[in-house]
């Protein structure tokens, strides 16, 4: 009997309510479904979507998945729209896991930590990719596509899916918003991917 190798990817997507993390989750979910992977995606709905901290647990695997939630120390990847939020879920990150995050603080609370100390703590982690995704999206003249820049940055680490599978999913998910939106999102994704490889 052939022994199949189980591949899995446990991802925590996080940010501040309204930043568009659910769109990232939807795209990865669409790509994973097309690729016939098993998938569970726990979302946050309700009150915290109003400018509070939000996260989604996204689990992909070649074998069946039981828990909707990721266990502590088991996440392969934290993808965050905001630097402080990327650190909120540290106890869930595996010691060999990676953080992919926006480097630009979103300050909507009076006691936001000191930015230099925050960045130092972030850089102290073994595997971190951070960039000012909003600046990149601005440069491309598509400020609303910052989340797609982030997804592009994370793509090399979501290696259970190919870049092509993720790009195709962007096309499917945003199809109803029109061709120009899909094009802008793909451009943002590619820019993020390119920057991440450098």
């Amino acid at each position: 009997m052939l022994k199949t190798i189980v591949m899995k990817k446990d991802i925590i997507l996080c940010g501040v309510g309204g930043q568009g993390i659910l769109s990232i989750a939807t795209i990865i979910g669409e790509a994973a479904t097309k690729a016939n992977l098993h998938l569970k995606q726990a979302e946050v709905h309700g009150m915290s979507q109003r400018g509070g901290d939000v996260q989604s647990n996204l689990r992909l695997s070649t074998s069946p998945i039981y828990s909707d939630l990721i266990s502590q120390g088991k996440a392969d990847l934290i993808i965050s729209m905001e630097p402080m939020e990327s650190l909120r879920y540290l106890p869930y990150l595996s010691e060999t896991g990676t953080i992919v995050t926006s480097s630009k603080p979103f300050v909507n609370i009076p006691n936001y930590p000191d930015e230099a100390a925050l960045m130092a703590e972030l850089e102290d982690k073994p595997s971190v990719v951070k960039m000012d995704i909003e600046a990149i999206a601005q440069e491309l003249k598509t400020p609303k596509a910052a989340n797609m820049v982030l997804l592009g940055m994370a793509a090399p680490y979501i290696d259970i899916l190919s870049v092509k599978q993720l790009r195709d999913a962007i096309g499917v998910v945003f199809a109803r918003r029109g061709e120009s939106v899909v094009e802008a999102d793909l451009k943002a994704f590619d820019k993020g991917l390119e920057a991440s490889k450098q």
Binding site: M84, L90, S94, E95, Y112, P113
Partner: peptide, 20 residues
């Protein structure tokens, strides 16, 4: 046992929801 992981971050603040 829980697998080894990172300690909670030091530079952290609660971010409660707020009115739009």
């Amino acid at each position: 046992p829980t697998p080894p992981s990172f300690q909670p971050a030091k530079n952290m603040a609660a971010r409660p929801p707020q009115l739009c």
